[in-house]
């Protein structure tokens, strides 16, 4: 508890890089987000943990403008961006990088063009120069240049994640979002990806918001951890304090126990 308060005090001292206040989002009768409050300071890494289907992906999509929240506000660098559209949204998107849960690589394009996509289409860079940067980013995530000519369908799951990561960092974003970066990978590959996430985001000095249900990954990449349950943030604190949060929900989640206050809704 005291840690959470301490975090709150430091949060007041500077304008957060990214802040969500009272964000609501429903799909028909399905109330997914019910007042999400959360903020990340510049250069920090926040990991939001929570069970499957609790609205973690929806939360990130609201920030990205893929979905629009029903209520609440989202600010980036102190500027309200909740309903940003058109040129304002484009400008905002240039600050963002996103690694999707399933990779979401364009399967009609070779790997290098996937990585360079934001540079060529979003920033109108010429293809030759964009290709050089793409190869450089592929190297940064441990892939040799020749992989650039393959198609996404020819890659293993781990390699696809790496390409997704390379694409997310290709335009040197200020804020990077990671949606379950280690899901579906073996523990060793998962750890390799964790290391790459830390390396690349620290290298760029980027702020990161990750969501995961993989505690090993959360412990490794987080400065701060928050837990989402039933559409609200029920705990938020320093990553070091996660093991003595005093919160029964958090304790049950990190133990992965079937008994506790969290009931599986079938």
């Amino acid at each position: 508890m005291s840690a959470a308060k301490a975090a709150a005090v430091t949060a007041k001292s500077a304008v957060p890089k990214l802040e969500l206040k009272g964000v609501y989002k429903s799909f028909g009768a399905n109330k997914v987000l019910r007042g999400v409050d959360i903020s990340v300071q510049k250069g920090k890494s926040l990991v939001v943990i929570g069970g499957s289907g609790t609205g973690k992906s929806v939360m990130i999509k609201c920030v990205l403008g893929i979905l629009y929240p029903d209520a609440g506000s989202i600010t980036v660098d102190g500027q309200d961006t909740t309903h940003a559209k058109g040129a304002h949204r484009d400008e905002l998107m240039r600050k963002f990088g996103m690694l999707f849960q399933g990779g979401a690589l364009f399967d009609s394009l070779p790997v290098w063009e996937n990585v360079a996509f934001g540079l060529i289409q979003g920033r109108k860079m010429d293809r030759k120069q964009a290709r050089e940067i793409a190869i450089e980013k592929l190297n940064a995530v441990g892939l040799p240049a020749r992989v650039g000519n393959l198609y996404p369908a020819e890659l293993s799951g781990g390699m696809q994640k790496r390409v997704g990561l390379a694409r997310a960092i290709a335009s040197n974003p200020e804020i990077i979002f990671f949606d379950e970066p280690t899901t579906g990978l073996d523990p060793i590959m998962a750890d390799v990806i964790n290391d790459l996430i830390i390396e690349t985001s620290k290298g760029l000095g980027a702020t990161t918001l990750s969501i995961t249900h993989d505690m090993a990954s959360a412990r490794k990449i987080a400065d701060d951890i928050a837990m989402i349950y039933k559409g609200q943030i029920i705990w938020h604190g320093n990553a070091k304090d996660i093991d003595h949060s005093g919160n029964l929900y958090v304790e049950q989640f990190i133990k992965g126990s079937a008994t506790g206050p969290i009931k599986m809704e079938l």
Binding site: G65, F96, M98, F100, L105, F106, D107, F117, Q121, G122
Partner: peptide
């Protein structure tokens, strides 16, 4: 492309 989030990815890449 929709169900594999490739359309969402286009949006995040300013396209």
């Amino acid at each position: 492309m929709r169900v594999t989030e490739q359309i969402d990815a286009l949006t995040t890449l300013s396209t």
